[in-house]
Amino acid sequence: MNLELLLEPLQYDFMTRALLVSALVGTVCAVLSCFVILKGWSLMGDAVSHAVLPGVVISYLLGLPFVIGAFAFGLLSVSAIGFIQSRSRVKEDTVIGVVFTALFALGLVMISKISSEVHLSHILFGDVLGIGDSELWQTVIAGAIALIVTLLLRKDLLLYVFDPTHARSIGLNTGVLNYVLLTMLALTIVTALQTVGVILVVAMLITPGATAYLLTDKFSKMLWIAVACGILSAVIGTYGSYFLDGATGACIVLVQSILFVLAFIFAPKHGQIARRRQQMAERADELGEGGPPTAPRPVLTRVRTSSKGQASD
C-alpha cells in the first residue's frame, strides 16, 4: 500500500469538508434510523425523500435555501398521506405509494422544464464533493436541529414507538409525538439530500438502524452502534469515492450495505452463524449427544390423588 496515495485526498479542502459533512449526515440519519426501523416507517422514509423533489426545484427557482422548500414538501407529503388515509378505505402503504410517486413525478416534470441535466443528477444522486458554503451551512443547521430534538425527546419517542397505548395512558400527547417524529424524519432527509441525493437517502435512514438491531437487544447500545456504522460508512464511502472519481452517495450506501451483510452473517446472537449454532446445540441437547449426560431422567409414577395437594379455593 502506498501511504502517500492514501493520504492524498486529505490534502484537498473539499475532501475534508466532504468528510465532515457526510460524517454529520451519517450521525443524524443513524439516530433517526433506530426509530424508523422500530416504528416500521421504512416506506414512509422512502416516500418523504422522493416527495421533497418539487420543493428543491421550487427553492431553486425562487432563490431560496433548498432546505426550506424540501422541508415544506416533506411535511406536505406526510400530511397528505395522513389526510387521505384517515378519509378513505385505502391501506396506508398504498396511500404512501400514490402520494410520493405523484410528488416525485411532479418534481421530474419541473426539472425537465426548467433546467439542464447537471442539476437533475445533482439533486437525484447528491454531490457532497462539490458542496458550496450555503449548502454546507443549511445541512449543518438542519442536521443539528434534527439531532438535538430527537436525542432530547428520545425516551418519549421510544415509548411512543414501543407502546403508544401506554404512552397515551400516562398522559403523553401521542399525536404530537407522532408529528415530532415525522418532522424530524423530514428534516433528516433534507439534511442528507446534498450528500446522497433523493433516491438513496432512504438507505441512510434504514440500514444503520437495521445493522444495529441485529447486533444488540438494548436500545441505548443500538443508538451507539447505528451512529458508529453511520459515521464509518460515511467516511469510508466519501474517501473511496475520491479514488472512484464520483458517486459519493452510492459509495456510502454500499459500505452501509456491506456492514449490514456482515452483521446479518456474523452477529453474535441474531446472526446466521450464531442462530445455526444455537439450533445445533439445542438439538444436540435434546438428543443427548455431546457432553456429559445431564441429570438422570426422573422416573414418572402415576399420581393418584391429584386433587389432594393444593387447596387453593
Partner: peptide, 10 residues
C-alpha cells in the same frame, strides 16, 4: 399481544 416482542428493551 399488542406490542412488538422483538423490541430492543429489557
Amino acid at each position: 399481544e399488542d406490542v412488538d416482542w422483538n423490541f430492543p428493551v429489557s
